[in-house]
């Protein structure tokens, strides 16, 4: 399945989906060295975002969150790509300075795909490809 989207941060990357319906504040929620979600109040608590295609509605919280994303990238613990319903400045800037593909303006249905689904994010071509689950 191919879904049109809008490029925020360029590049092309693929990985297994990690999906949440909750916004993410990178500062405080994600450990910048390991990529583990350490906020017990978050739906993704105890999961690692490293190497995943992280799908979430939007970012929130402190602007320092942009630098947390950069630190994740330098430690090899960043998501392979990110997809938002609507990007806001913290995640947008974080993805761009870190060179992580980020797209937004996707249909809300994308938040109901299964964790672990293979997803390709091609920000340059403004398209998201989702592998159909094998029957």
């Amino acid at each position: 399945m191919e879904i049109r989207c809008h490029r925020v941060s360029g590049g092309r990357s693929a990985g297994k989906a990690l999906v949440t319906r909750e916004p993410i504040s990178f500062l405080g929620t994600v450990d910048p060295d390991t990529g583990m979600v350490v906020d017990p109040g978050h739906e993704l608590y105890g999961r690692s975002i490293g190497g995943k295609v992280l799908i979430f509605p939007e970012g929130k919280g402190s602007t320092v969150g942009s630098y947390v994303i950069y630190q994740l990238k330098k430690r090899g613990a960043a998501p392979a790509a990110m997809i938002n319903l609507q990007s806001e400045p913290i995640v947008a800037v974080g993805a761009i300075i870190s060179g992580i593909p980020l797209v937004d303006r996707v249909p809300e249905d994308l938040l109901s795909i299964e964790d672990g689904t293979e997803v390709v994010v091609d920000a340059d071509e403004e398209v998201v490809r989702i592998e159909e689950p094998s029957a």
Binding site: A92, V93, I97
Partner: peptide, 8 residues
Amino acid sequence: ILVALGDI
């Protein structure tokens, strides 16, 4: 960055 913020 400028384009992303402009779009937002």
